[in-house]
């Protein structure tokens, strides 16, 4: 069953048509990736899907509900959480307080202690630095915090926008490993990446976005073997 369906999504920036009517879906339990070059419209797609930027046209169905017009802050409550591009953790808050904000949408506070302990278990670095101001964390730690913060909201669908951006190769491997793990533990994942090789390797399915249009789709394996993808995104 499709957990997320996006139909004919269009987004404009002024007169520029950034997204020209794309459709895709994410099924329960999958890891789905949107790959594409800089400026292809990946982040725009992610942000308009959750209502952070307005849609010109299209329809978004999540978990059976039409959320096309639902305001951004309510979407988390339905079970769709996004780790935004550039992580955007709250620099002035501590690691702990960032995680507290991650749990903002959870009305029942009784599980908070358990949730935060399980985040600390998954990301031991965050446990060590729980009282540190988040702005002083390294890039890798900030990415861990952004993912931990998102998990605090118990998402059914976790959306990650360029989680590998700006990280060392070792950390990139670690981040993809964690994404795989989170998915194994029962969370559906929608990933946006420039790192096509690594993301296709962990994806069930993927879409290729070019100039605001989906030009190719298939399983992760199919796409990583496609000549077109190899040429444009895998360096040969």
């Amino acid at each position: 069953m499709a957990l997320l369906e996006v139909h004919d999504l269009e987004v404009n920036y002024g007169v520029i048509r950034a997204i020209k009517g794309i459709s895709f879906e994410v099924n329960e339990g999958e890891i789905v990736t949107l790959i594409g070059a800089n400026g292809a419209g990946k982040t725009t797609t992610m942000q308009s899907t959750v209502g952070l930027i307005p849609k010109k046209a299209g329809k978004v169905i999540f978990d059976g509900n039409d959320i096309t017009k639902v305001p951004c802050h309510k979407i988390v409550h339905l079970g769709m959480t996004q780790v935004p591009e550039g992580r955007r953790i709250f620099q002035e808050l501590t690691v702990y307080e960032n995680l507290l904000m991650g749990a903002y949408s959870i009305k029942d506070k009784s599980g908070f202690k358990n949730d935060i302990e399980s985040v600390y278990e998954r990301f031991p670095r965050l446990a060590e630095r729980r009282n540190q101001i988040a702005g002083t964390l390294s890039g890798g730690e900030q990415q861990m915090l952004a993912m931990g913060r998102a998990i605090m909201s118990h998402p059914k669908l976790l959306m990650l926008d360029e989680p590998s951006m700006g990280l060392s190769p070792l950390l990139v491997d670690q981040v993809f490993e964690i994404i795989k793990q989170i998915n194994k533990d029962g969370t559906t994942v929608l990933l946006v990446e420039q790192n096509a090789g690594k993301s296709l390797a962990i994806s069930d399915r993927a879409y290729v976005l070019e100039n605001g249009e989906i030009v190719l789709s298939g399983t992760g394996k199919e796409l990583s073997e496609s000549e077109m993808v190899k040429k444009a995104y895998l360096g040969g």
Partner: peptide, 24 residues
């Protein structure tokens, strides 16, 4: 307070705060 921390979060990054479910 949680609301107080949310105020700091909104003042720092309104978009990210919305993504956390904070009603700006």
């Amino acid at each position: 307070s949680r609301t107080g921390r949310a105020m700091v979060a909104v003042s720092e990054d309104r978009g990210a705060a919305q993504l956390m479910g904070i009603n700006v």
